[in-house]
């Protein structure tokens, strides 16, 4: 199930917004658009490569991708922001152009300890964009502003 998404859609079909990190994904020959469509096994090197770079976040992130948990919000001003539904159903806000996620793991293991590059939600955004599994939703400028702000406590 997990690998199905990657197997169906080549990362290069992600459109113009392909991300820097996804270069890592693209480096894998199996994921190159010019490569003839091969079976699931062709993507195994890709998965191990992802796991090597991103560690244990990879499988949970692929789960999020499979569940179509990533939504990209766009407003008429052109401003964008991402929201990811976490495995517990909680919504996390992630900024579009720099690494930030409102989840606790981002604060602890990315910001504080620095032992991870991204949390599973940010990784899920990269993977969703790369595989075309990202939901798109238009909102008003005002709604987008509200999405950018931390939740009221």
């Amino acid at each position: 199930m997990k690998r199905q998404v990657l197997a169906c859609k080549c990362p290069c079909s992600g459109g113009p917004g392909i991300l820097e990190l996804s270069e890592i994904i693209r480096c894998s020959p199996a994921s190159h658009p010019c490569a003839p469509r091969r079976g699931l096994s062709a993507h195994l090197p890709l998965l191990s490569r992802l796991r090597f770079v991103f560690g244990t976040s990879v499988v949970p992130a692929l789960d999020l991708v499979d569940r179509q948990s990533v939504t990209r919000f766009v407003s008429p001003s052109g401003r964008t922001v991402y929201q990811v539904v976490g495995s517990s159903g909680k919504l996390y806000t992630c900024y579009a152009s720099c690494h930030f996620c409102s989840c606790p793991a981002f604060t602890f293991s990315v910001l504080r300890k620095g032992d991870n590059l991204v949390c599973k939600h940010l990784l899920a955004i990269y993977l969703s964009r790369a595989t075309g599994a990202c939901q798109e939703q238009s909102v008003s400028n005002q709604q987008l502003t509200a999405l950018l702000l931390p939740e009221e406590k």
Binding site: Y95, A96, S97, C98, F100, T107, L111, P150
Partner: peptide
């Protein structure tokens, strides 16, 4: 919290990128 501090700076950066 450090998380909200990071959110402010990330928001500034995301805004300048926008």
């Amino acid at each position: 919290s450090p998380c909200t501090a990071a959110q402010l700076v990330a928001l500034l950066l995301d805004t300048s990128n926008y």
